[in-house]
């Protein structure tokens, strides 16, 4: 472990700690909480999209399922939040496994449409099963997260929890990517045939990543629902799934920081513009299109290039300085169809 490599992470930890101490404006804290929640979900999706090269248009459903299971367990059965959260994530893992198994056996991007259909089915079910889910009226009065005597009943505390979860998952994800299976995963994105020839279990690998990314989304859903204290089927509709994909693409597919950057951008931007008026769809579509066409590495790579160019100009002596650690290197893209 190099210290240099960990600088961004250390900075993140430091700024989270500083923010928790210094920021008292609940509006800012709330926005940061939402950014953290979305960043957790997009980090999982990024693992799938950027590292395994598979697209899912149903991750909103995993988010919604995580939220709903936890909401139902805590409001109907009085389960403690932590148990409800664990159960919600476990259940979503099982469902993701069942959905992913058939879709991922097939070559190519059947997963895209399979997950889209799955997402719609979940959305319809959440609306129709009124007895269980409250139907379109949703579930209200969901308790705030608590662990024993500690209750996350203020924005500052909730902020701390969300970002601690994010940092923990970030370290976990980075370790996964840098581990043996992680390298196998990246090989997969390069060429499935080649990876298979090297003895990598391609389908099994893809399935594992799919389930893992669904678990991230479910956890984000759990964090969301105990913060907002209300959930309706709207929480994980198709538009939300697309928004998650947009966040990943805008931030940078295959970059660990991409999900966070995308989530921050697409949460802050609409707030800054304060009046998106009727242009929000055009803006989302435009960002998506422009990013994949002109900056396929997303913001992370754009910034990296910029900073690399600046540094190269400063220290022209060190040719190796342009790219940093392995982790943040853009994943080789599959170019053949």
């Amino acid at each position: 472990m190099h210290v240099r490599k960990n600088i961004p992470l250390i900075l993140l930890v430091a700024s989270v700690a500083a923010a928790a101490l210094l920021i008292t404006d609940p509006y800012i804290l709330t926005m940061l909480i939402f950014i953290g929640i979305y960043a957790i979900a997009t980090m999982g999706l990024n693992l799938l999209l950027g590292f395994a090269g598979q697209i899912s248009l149903g991750h909103g459903a995993f988010f919604a399922l995580g939220a709903y299971v936890s909401a139902i367990l805590t409001t109907r059965f009085g389960a403690p939040c932590t148990a409800a959260a664990a159960l919600a994530v476990a259940l979503v893992c099982a469902i993701a496994w069942a959905v992913g198994l058939p879709c991922l056996r097939l070559k190519g991007h059947y997963l895209a449409m399979g997950t889209l259909a799955f997402g719609e089915i979940i959305h319809i079910t959440l609306n129709a099963e009124v007895e269980l889910t409250g139907g379109p009226s949703g579930i209200a009065g969901i308790p705030v997260l608590s662990l024993g005597p500690f209750s996350a009943d203020s924005d500052a505390r909730y902020f701390l929890i969300v970002w601690c979860v994010f940092i923990a998952l970030f370290v976990l994800t980075r370790n996964i990517i840098n581990s043996r299976p992680g390298r196998a995963l990246q090989a997969l994105h390069g060429s499935e045939q080649a990876a298979g020839a090297m003895g990598i279990d391609v389908a099994g690998m893809k399935l594992t990543v799919f389930v893992l990314s669904a678990a991230y989304a479910a956890l984000a859903g759990v964090l969301y629902v105990h913060f907002v204290a209300f959930v309706s089927p709207q929480a994980g509709d198709i538009m939300f799934s697309i928004k998650m994909v947009t966040m990943v693409v805008a931030g940078g597919m295959g970059h660990l920081w991409g999900g966070l950057l995308g989530a921050a951008l697409l949460t802050v931007l609409p707030e800054m513009l304060s009046y998106f008026e009727d242009y929000d769809m055009l803006i989302y579509g435009g960002i998506l299109l422009a990013m994949v066409m002109f900056m396929p590495g997303g913001l992370t790579q754009g910034l990296a290039r910029l900073s690399g160019a600046l540094r190269a100009r400063r220290t022209a002596v060190r040719p190796g300085a342009v790219t940093g650690g392995r982790t943040e290197d853009p994943v080789p893209r599959r170019t053949a169809q």
């Binding site: 999209l49 090269g53 598979q54 697209i55 248009l57 190519g108 991007h109 895209a112 697309i242 994909v245 693409v249 597919m253 009727d278 242009y279 929000d280 769809m281 055009l282 989302y284 579509g285 435009g286 998506l288 299109l289 994949v292 066409m293 396929p296 893209r333 599959r334 170019t335 169809q337």
Partner: peptide
């Protein structure tokens, strides 16, 4: 890559809808 193509048509659909 196929992934990019999927995202492009997805973006196209959102832009058509928005317009």
């Amino acid at each position: 890559p196929v992934l990019i193509l999927i995202i492009i048509t997805l973006a196209g659909s959102i832009i058509f809808k928005g317009s």
